[in-house]
Design a protein around this nucleic acid. Structure first.
Lengths: 334, 334
DNA sequence: CTGTTAGCGCTTTCAC
DNA sequence: GTGAAAGCGCTAACAG
């Protein structure tokens, strides 16, 4: 039975109001302050945040829904978000959608019912009606990494299309014209990155054949299976662009198991650094996203909304820039 | 302004008690049931879990403190824990200690103040006084992966010492006698795995020199730096045992950057599968922990305690078994 | 600066 | 099966 504020009251003889004031940083007579502090120590008193939340209608907790907590990409993002929130005195309620939209909706309802002060969503896919779901709760919502369906919501992300375009240009500069792309086919980032890839090739007058597009799900398995197919093609492309971390992992696995090698037999360009490029041999050439900035900025944006520092109602779309991490996985075939 | 139960009351003309009863699965006249359901739908009513928690003194939320959410090892564990909890209707409040004991203590207090129904801790190190901290809150506590200081608490883990012993035996069988070990020097698992390593070698009458022991912190950096030192030794050991995932990653990076290769010049034995062994070339030989089982069992254990199915007060220590994932990173030098 | 009092939204006796 | 009323632990007026 943890102690309550009533116990402190009985112990000190002070009123609830005074104790509550002290608890919330108000001014109290030095002698009373000492009394209260002693009582707190002796009784091991800790504020009941549930009770406090009920009256203030604030929980100093923000909810995060991630499409997969198993992905180190999200783990990294969560780390930076957690750091930033902790500094601001906020806690983090994390839910894992496990790649399932139904679960995602349930989780968001759960978070809403927990009365989180704000919500950050790294969605499974665009178009799960999340905005709709949150609207009624009247709390700020920020999308991270993947923009919402219609873009009518605050969002922190990279310019996926441009990032893919610049990356593809590296392959082009190295003489590649017959390039395959493995990407997720349904969610926002995959679609955009695919567009950027096509743009880059169109810019140099190259039309990519249909069988060079591998559009599936965001998973290691899909990356693996697709790369296997590519490897076994009679007219194999000279390079492959893997548009996210999981797909990149899967593709690397497939090449490692095969008899061909990179970059001699096939050039590879990946997405999302996360140690991978240092572990593979040869080091992977990849697009790297500013993970730290993404995590931090999205929390800052959300907290500004919560604390009403940002009063304008126009959705903020923060587009961060990416870098290219050089590696040895691309062969110059000029 | 989300709707409250009062709005439902006004809409239906029923009393709070009846509505509350319906909400909690009690029996209500069919006609009233319909009335309530309609009102709920029309008003988009959702239970305020904060208010409910205040009166029931239950939140159907369990708190998890992990030493680092950035580690894919923990991400994987969290995924399985989340799955299991969701099935049981519980939510998950995750805090990241970011490898810092001070933060860990703060996070646990935070979780306690949030009135979680139970706590799972994957601790930064043994001996952070966590049991003490939780004792007063009077909720179940389960340690995962790393046992508590004195073992006086429920715990789900592997037999680290035996796992390390068996793994080391593989190196021995392949003719290795001069083996280095890179492990974390402070936390429970590192210490135990180091013991198992020493045991295995003692069993065959080999005494390992002091300079073969690298005991530092659980990080990629430490694995990297240590392996660099090993590579540059004039009397280099023939094999290296890396006792956790991060250290294994770092060591692989160091070898990739060097001019020596594995397993020709040095044999390697790692810990924790997690895709790594499929991405490295050659495939890493490693100890694999039953992550799924660990995540599931620890949740089951905790829920049993919470729901008082387990009334005996003796601490349960669940020790799961590990497997060896074969690879090509060990050279037979017999 | 301190105390009294009225709720926050919900569950839970206890009568009816 | 339903309703009235009390109260979970805390904060926030408002008086003093």
């Amino acid at each position: 039975m943890p102690a309550t504020i009533i116990d402190i009251k009985n112990r000190t003889g002070l009123s609830l109001a005074t104790i509550s004031k002290y608890l919330n940083g108000g001014n109290v007579l030095p002698e009373n302050k000492i009394k209260i502090e002693m009582a707190i120590k002796e009784l091991h008193y800790e504020v009941n945040e549930i009770a406090r939340g009920l009256v203030t209608n604030k929980t100093r907790t923000i909810g995060v829904s991630v499409y997969s907590i198993e992905s180190i990409f999200n783990g990294t993002l969560l780390k930076y978000m957690g750091d930033t929130l902790r500094k601001a005195g906020y806690g983090l309620l994390i839910c894992d959608s496990n790649q399932d939209e139904e679960t995602e909706r349930k989780n968001i309802k759960f978070l809403l019912n927990k009365k989180v002060d704000g919500l950050i969503v790294i969605p499974v896919e665009a178009g799960n009606g999340i905005i709709e779901l949150v609207k009624n709760a009247d709390i700020p919502l920020v999308f991270l990494d993947r923009a919402a369906e219609n873009g009518g919501c605050d969002c922190v992300r990279i310019d996926n299309r441009m990032a893919a375009l610049h990356a593809t240009n590296v392959l082009i500069k190295n003489g590649h014209r017959d390039i395959a792309i493995i990407s997720s086919g349904k969610e926002y980032t995959g679609i955009e990155r695919c567009k950027g890839f096509t743009d880059a090739l169109k810019n140099v007058g190259v039309e990519i054949k249909e069988d060079r597009y591998f559009k599936g799900i965001h998973s290691i398995e899909y990356g693996y299976e697709s790369m296997k197919k590519i490897i076994s093609m009679q007219n194999r492309p000279t390079a492959v662009f893997m548009t996210n971390y999981e797909i990149t992992l899967g593709a690397v696995m497939a090449v490692n198991e095969s008899s061909i090698s990179c970059p001699e037999d096939i050039s590879m360009l990946g997405f999302d650094d996360l140690i991978l490029s240092h572990v593979t041999n040869p080091a992977m050439y990849m697009v790297v996203q500013p993970m730290k900035e993404m995590g931090e900025k999205c929390v800052e944006l959300l907290l500004n909304k919560i604390e009403k520092k940002n009063t304008d109602m126009v959705p903020v779309e923060l587009v961060l820039s990416t870098k290219l991490q050089e590696g040895n996985s691309i062969k110059d075939i000029n």
